[in-house]
Design a protein around this nucleic acid. Structure first.
Lengths: 334, 334
DNA sequence: TTGTACGCGTTATCAC
DNA sequence: GTGATAACGCGTACAA
């Protein structure tokens, strides 16, 4: 059977209290008593019950990682796994377990956010994949459980966030294109329910304006491949003179490349394409995709770290990671 | 503050017992009393504490998903995310939460398997990424916590497994090659610490023998790209007449394709290459990779389902999923 | 230095 | 139908 603190007490001939003290490293225990208890504990493979402990300490030492909106499309792999891994690594480091929960806008209406948290007594939550109109988003902000949002820049008493500098990232991309001599640059943005889309568009506009280029060409997709293909066709139809496209995701960039091919345009000879995310695929397609790298593992690990900070009672300050331009072969001016 | 069952009892003017009964749908509660309690519960947003409940029921309603050996290489994305998702979906469906834990052979020596389980009172565990000499593997088998192993065909009192029919998968691959007229077929297998390698090699040998082709050519890699490249070179060096290579992973297949190119061989014109796993990349590289598809999401969801079966006290019978040959452009005889 | 006693939020076993 | 009361395994004032 499972050995409890009570068993240890009995076998060691001391009280439960003393065992508890000895195990938790209190100073007021006679060295010999402690030694005896520790020995016994090891011998009997005693494992304190986190459940029982949580009940009294009010801490579950468990974090929730809630992923929203991935049910349908399975194209998020590259992104998600690294984030998950980052979260787990850091959480483990800090002594926390991680419960993974997947949800969708649909489910959110059925199961209130706080139910998820309180049922498991989650100490804190990391939320990824939020859309503007997500039910949870509102619940989270005025909930009592600390939360770190990934890619949604909100800071409050119990909330903080982690994201990359999407505005800067977009400028990086566009500046690269400008540097190569492009003047007619279009953008295929993601859907406007994502916060990152807003920032990326802002960066796009800024960069263009700074180069005295006006009337930005923008169409919107859904981050998926097919929408990139359609976007590219739509753009070229109305603007045949266009020479470069900045896409808000690598998948849309792939789609765009294919769309351009359908139109008989060569990439990058006639039209340059730049993506966003730096998923593994980029290196392997032809032409290899120039893109903006997002530090995914860090996105996760920093989120966990920030959450632990919040849990300590300190105020969150929001964390903005640096994007990085990765130049490959889909952008060229020759 | 948090509202407990005690509060409900007080406010409803009944005892705790009655509240508990009403909430858990017992029959022996006056309809009116029940209505009143339920109403109150909803109104006050009462959420039962899973922690407290677990303490008495001995069930945490939590599954552990332990992933081993992914720390270093990040090439497991495609595979892992789908499995994770499958597990979560199915677990949620069955009323279980999932705790995700990453471990490595190194950590396994530090933290005993049962510590992980007992600390969180895991009801059951799904283990992925086991190697032959994994410390946990042995611990798991004679542990008291039910476990489903992914890709390790072991069935015991409290253990079961889920895997694809790797042997058949290998035969599928080789038969395809044979059908295209290949006679000199080599294999780049994964490392021998993986159970799947054994099966795939067996299938490879079987298929060859059945075609009266003997002296199988086999080299071993580590499932990663670079080892595929090296493997291909090694093979061709000693067997210049070889016309097809069966690789135990898509990454090794990619590597093999590049290795062949380095040698001036064209794929598939001179040498055909077939991979294993059907990661997304396959569709996008040139030439698109012929491969064996593994139903990853099902691997996860079936594992969760099987675990729940085990939890119900029923015996596990092991689940073998069907592989599927996906023909693309890296195998051709012309 | 050590032990007593209580409480954490539930469920379960009895009585009434 | 309903209500005391005892667990569950542990932490911690308060005493001794």
């Amino acid at each position: 059977m499972k050995v409890t603190i009570k068993d240890l007490a009995r076998l060691a001939g001391v009280s439960i209290t003393t065992v508890s003290r000895a195990l938790n490293g209190y100073k007021d225990v006679r060295p010999e008593t402690r030694r005896k208890i520790l020995e016994l504990a090891k011998e009997l493979h005693y494992r304190p019950s986190g459940i029982a402990r949580s009940l009294v300490t009010k801490e579950s030492k468990t974090l929730g990682l809630i992923i929203s909106g991935f049910t349908g499309s399975r194209k998020g792999h590259h992104f998600m796994f690294d984030i998950i891994y980052g979260v787990i690594d850091q959480a483990t480091e800090c002594g926390y377990d991680v419960i993974l929960a997947a949800t969708s806008p649909h489910q959110q209406k059925a199961v209130p956010y706080m139910e998820l948290c309180q049922r498991r007594q989650l100490d804190g939550v990391i939320f990824f994949g939020a859309r503007r109109n997500d039910v949870y988003l509102h619940e989270i902000i005025n909930a009592s459980v600390p939360c770190v949002l990934i890619d949604v820049p909100i800071v409050s008493d119990r909330c903080s966030f982690v994201t990359v500098d999407n505005r800067k990232a977009a400028r990086l991309a566009v500046d690269h294109l400008l540097l190569q001599g492009h003047r007619r640059i279009a953008m295929i943005n993601g859907h406007q329910e994502a916060y990152v889309s807003e920032e990326r568009e802002a960066g796009f506009r800024e960069a263009l304006k700074q180069a005295d280029l006006d009337e930005p060409l923008i169409v919107y997709g859904d981050f998926e491949e097919e929408s990139g293909r359609e976007g590219a066709k739509k753009l070229l139809e109305t603007n045949p003179d266009l020479t470069a496209i900045f896409c808000a995701s690598d998948w849309m960039a792939m789609g765009a490349v294919n769309g351009l091919r359908d139109l008989g345009k060569r990439v990058p000879e006639e039209v340059s394409v730049i993506g966003f995310d730096d998923i593994e695929l980029c290196r392997y397609v032809t032409p290899a995709l120039t893109t903006i790298h997002q530090p995914r593992y860090e996105l996760g690990s920093k989120a966990a770290k920030e959450l632990v900070t919040l849990l300590r009672g300190e105020k969150g300050k929001g964390i903005v990671l640096e994007p990085e331009l990765i130049i490959r072969n889909s952008t060229n001016w020759s």
